[in-house]
Design a protein around this nucleic acid. Sequence first.
DNA 1: TAACTATACTACTTTTTAGTAAGTTATTGC
DNA 2: GCAATAACTTACTAAAAAGTAGTATAGTTA
Lengths: 103, 103
Amino acid sequence: MKKEIHCPLHYAMNLIGTKWKPLILFHLLDGELRSGMLQKKIPGISNKMFTQTVRELEKDGLLSRKVYPVVPPKVEYKLSDRGRSLETILRSLDQWGLHDCEK
Amino acid sequence: MKKEIHCPLHYAMNLIGTKWKPLILFHLLDGELRSGMLQKKIPGISNKMFTQTVRELEKDGLLSRKVYPVVPPKVEYKLSDRGRSLETILRSLDQWGLHDCEK
DNA sequence: TAACTATACTACTTTTTAGTAAGTTATTGC
DNA sequence: GCAATAACTTACTAAAAAGTAGTATAGTTA
């Protein structure tokens, strides 16, 4: 079964339809964060998945990664314009979860 | 690493954050559909994944499943109120994908 | 009586995703 | 000269998701 995109929603889900991507984008809505801080905001994510996921988001142009050549390392992440364009959706999903889980 | 819910968005993604769930819900926005029709609207999904996914959505109360005791079988799916409450988000995601993929 | 129908289920395999634990780096502070 | 630091990276394993192919059903139509 081939991996083809059949509609815009399908396309969107291919970009952000995973367990962690929306969480990471969501926590960057309020501004850029250092790697460690961002990761702390997402309890339950493993170190490996965190790195892997931000790298994919970077590859897809949803966030940017700024590396400072210092030791110990310093890396900052922030949303790109493309990533920021998801703000309404991410906040809506969060709101939806908030109301829904009360039931 | 335990599977715990840490924020509303995380909760929401646990319910609909998979490859096929949003697609299925999306295609039910315009009204109930027979199983075969719904499946045809989602090219690329295998028969097994279709059945499995609608069953999970039913279990989570996002859609309802009506079985007519006839031969050959007739099964209809439609959104529950809970599922319908995702309408804005699903349409937004679709729109986002539409605009984004043009770039 | 044999094929066809729409839907689902099952066993099995492959692919993808995720988790664990260890190692790397170059400078600072003791 | 040794530990601590932040952010990976890698090798390995485990678990989850997805795909393939085959089976069941019981009426209708050829």
